[in-house]
Amino acid sequence: MKKTLSAVLKYFFLTAFAVGFLYPFLWMLSGSFKPDFDVMKLGLFSSHFTLFNYDLVFGRIPILRAFLNSLIVAMSVTATVIVFGSMVGYALAKIKWKGAGTLTVFLLFTMTLPFQLTLIPLYTMVVKFGITDNLLGLILPNMLTAVSVIMFRQFFVTIPDSLIEAARIDGCGELRVIFNVVVPLSKPAVVTVGIITFLTSWNDVLWPLIVIRNRYLMTLPQLITVFVLGGQAESHLGAELAASVLLAVPILVIYSFFQRYFIQSFVSSGVKG
């Protein structure tokens, strides 16, 4: 009896908090289909269903273009981080050479550097290279991260040398060893690095705000921030919510299918990083 009571309490409590986490998202979603005078109501259903807010968003800002920009940037960054990160990780884990120790120490050192330190100099670099107002300005400075290299290194160390030797005897060059043998054996590491890198890039606002001024090159979160702050929403609350929905939905859809991987990635990157 006592046991069921405590179980009921437990579920009641967990459900109450689950509502606390879900409700704001549901309110946002329903608000985006309501006219302004209904948005601020607590209830999720309105008798005045409207697509006006989405019309406004699509009419005012190049949101599809921004979606595409975000996708190009996040995918490019994820690809380069995985490709180059695994190459360097392999060099540190599986090849005995003099520089490996120094490089590892250097990597760990750069991981401790707060980004505030290099934010301004990095901006001036991007200006010097002439890649402001250019998606390269978002991709190049993020094309590799020390964390990803270290994570690949940690994982590659656990792969038995015999497998690599066997591949070499079969005549594989080092690059083929990496991409045909080591990386396929390291799916968890690739998934972790991939998800974390993609999300970080997709959700970043500060760097795009600094580098991109042309609205056709803005990333999705940047464009929406500018839309809300810059007054183009003309205080239409529903439109602001509609823009937020468009920003949140792609990630939430992917998340609902692969939430296990997402959570696992954060746990392993948190624990190791």
Partner: peptide
């Protein structure tokens, strides 16, 4: 003019980049 928070930010960047 490319839209951002303020025209001045855009122009400052354009002057720096000579664009």
């Amino acid at each position: 003019l490319p839209v951002n928070r303020s025209t001045e930010e855009v122009l400052m960047a354009a002057i720096a980049a000579r664009t």
